[in-house]
């Protein structure tokens, strides 16, 4: 039971996918126009994440390493399709609000990332709680971002009028108070970028101050670096459909070899880049000489 609790806390606080790791940015920005949409998206993702983690963990000794990615994708896509049909049937308003972003849960990097990094190597019980914790962390983050955007952009919260706007003023002893003008840009697309920019700025601030105090802050922002080309993160980028470098055996047994290979690859890429840069410099010099 202890490990379940530990996984939950890990997902919600220590490795919160949005606030700490910065994973799954597309749905984070797209559906957080209101708190209720954010919550709906978060909970849908949570269900998919927990169920797919359980299934992948159950099958972890059967799936061959080479075709693990397509296998994971099929499992995840099946659960997403099931949930899509359920939402269409029972929560049509949420289904309409989230629209195309429901089937796009399939490509949410949190889900494949957790499948690769955790569920394919760990027993069913802790995988379930890992998925649940990560999903709840994601839901909380989306709800918070949605609440901020809704409050600033429309003056509402979960659909209830909160701020004193001109349409819905506060009444104090017969006087109307309406000092708040909703900045509708926060509900539109640009607002999403600005809110996320502030969020990442706060993250950076915390990281910088933590590093000054000598704490280990490497987890913050580790899910999505600014540089996809040199990032070896399993969650999003360098995934092969058919992994020719993986062994034949079941998933997760040749991790050490793989990380070694990855390091070697990284070194190679870095070397290539250096060479290219040197070439460019030589060219520039030649040009200067010609001039």
């Amino acid at each position: 039971m202890n490990s379940g609790k530990e996984r939950l806390i890990n997902g919600i606080i220590k490795e919160n996918p949005t606030f700490v790791l910065m994973l799954g940015m597309c749905p984070t920005l797209a559906v957080t126009t209101s708190a209720i949409n954010g919550l709906g998206m978060g909970l849908t993702t949570t269900v998919v994440l927990a169920l797919s983690n359980v299934f992948i963990s159950l099958l972890r000794n059967i799936i061959p390493d080479k075709v693990r990615i397509p296998a994971f994708i099929v499992i995840i896509a099946s659960f997403v399709t099931m949930l899509e049909l359920l939402l269409e049937g029972f929560l049509p308003s949420l289904y309409a609000a989230l629209g195309i972003y429901i089937p796009l849960i399939v490509v949410n990097c949190i889900i494949l990332g957790r499948a690769e990094a955790y569920a394919s190597k760990n027993p069913v019980f802790s995988s379930f709680f890992d998925g649940l914790g990560m999903g709840l962390g994601f839901s909380i983050a989306l709800t918070c971002i949605g609440a901020v955007r809704e409050l600033l952009g429309a003056g509402d919260l979960f659909g209830f009028h909160i701020m004193p706007t001109a349409d819905h003023p506060w009444m104090f002893g017969g006087k109307e108070i309406a000092f708040f003008t909703p900045a509708s840009i926060f509900v539109l697309a640009p607002g999403a970028f600005f809110v996320l920019a502030c969020l990442t700025a706060i993250q950076n601030k915390v990281k910088l101050e933590g590093e000054k105090k000598g704490k280990d802050m490497s987890k913050i922002g580790s899910g999505c670096s600014e540089d996809c080309m040199n990032c070896g993160e399993e969650g999003c980028g360098k995934r092969r459909f058919y992994d020719t470098e993986a062994g034949e055996g079941p998933v997760g047994k040749k991790e050490e070899q793989k990380t070694e290979q990855k390091n070697i690859e990284k070194q190679k890429i870095a070397e290539q880049q250096k060479k290219a840069e040197e070439k460019e410099k030589v060219k520039e010099r030649e040009e200067e000489n010609n001039e």
């Binding site: 970028f193 600005f194 920019a197 990442t200 700025a201 706060i202 950076n204 910088l208």
Partner: peptide
């Protein structure tokens, strides 16, 4: 300092979105 890296890119993207 806190805006270096990702945040300033997001602000830029927001302005482009406008």
């Amino acid at each position: 300092a806190p805006f270096r890296g990702m945040p300033i890119v997001l602000v830029t993207a927001g302005l482009m979105a406008i």
